[in-house]
Computed example of a mutant assay.
Amino acid sequence: MFVRTVYSTGDPTNIDTAVRALNTQGRDLLEERPGYRGAGVFVDHRLGKLFAVSWWDTEEARHNSDEVMRERRSSLLDPFAGTVAVDNYEVAVFHAIQHPRVGGGLRLTRLEFDPLDADLVADTFRATEVPRLESLAGLARTSLFVDRERGRGMVDTLFVDRESMAATRAAQAPIRRAGAAKAHVTVTALEEFEVVYADVRAD
């Protein structure tokens, strides 16, 4: 699978307006596109951050959806978004345990690595980190996204509730440290969001 991510920041008092637009008009637009597999919307109300992900069968399907979404994105995010960053990734690893819940938590880890090490990063995450992440209480799903050309990626770890996410901060830290060392990865950012919506067909 492939994903497109949209990361926007803005006035926290207007973030719910953007969330409503994404969950209605935005989802309708996505569901009309061939190859669409699902989407997720995640927010940080305190700081005014919104992170959205759309999932696609193929790179071509994602690319073909770009034009219509690019034209509508500003109106969907208005009046909230002051900055918007759009990125594309390959889904290197997808591991689901249970369905994420509204009000749950997303821990997002941003990575940088030598583009030649993309397979090493994926193999390490799949073989070493996923089995250890499974032991975290409340884990719903974890995925690894990679951009092979730019040597960038992100790990998204979803929990069924924010209490579980908070309780696993210390437990996930050594998993992240060991995986980064083994795969020669630099962790560039660590963020947490509330789950507004998260659904993807992985079969």
Rank of each mutant, 00 (worst) to 15 (best):
F2C: 12
Y7W: 11
Y7E: 09
T9V: 15
D11C: 06
T13D: 14
N14Y: 12
I15Q: 01
T17S: 09
A21C: 07
L22H: 10
Q25E: 12
R27G: 07
D28W: 01
D28E: 03
L30H: 01
R33G: 09
G35A: 04
G38D: 03
L47K: 15
A52P: 01
S54A: 10
W55D: 02
W56P: 00
D57R: 09
E59Y: 07
R72C: 02
S74N: 15
S75C: 03
P79E: 05
A85P: 00
V86I: 10
V91G: 03
F94S: 11
H99E: 14
G103S: 05
R110F: 14
P115E: 08
A122S: 08
A122P: 05
D123W: 02
D123R: 14
T124I: 04
V130G: 03
V130N: 00
E134D: 11
L136H: 09
A140V: 15
R141K: 04
S143H: 11
S143C: 05
L144V: 14
G151I: 15
R152I: 14
R152S: 06
V155E: 03
D161Q: 07
E163R: 01
E163Q: 08
S164I: 11
S164V: 00
S164Q: 06
R169D: 15
A170G: 00
H184Y: 13
A189P: 02
L190H: 10
E192F: 08
E194Y: 01
V195H: 03
V196L: 02
D199P: 08
V200F: 04
R201A: 14
R201H: 11
A202V: 13
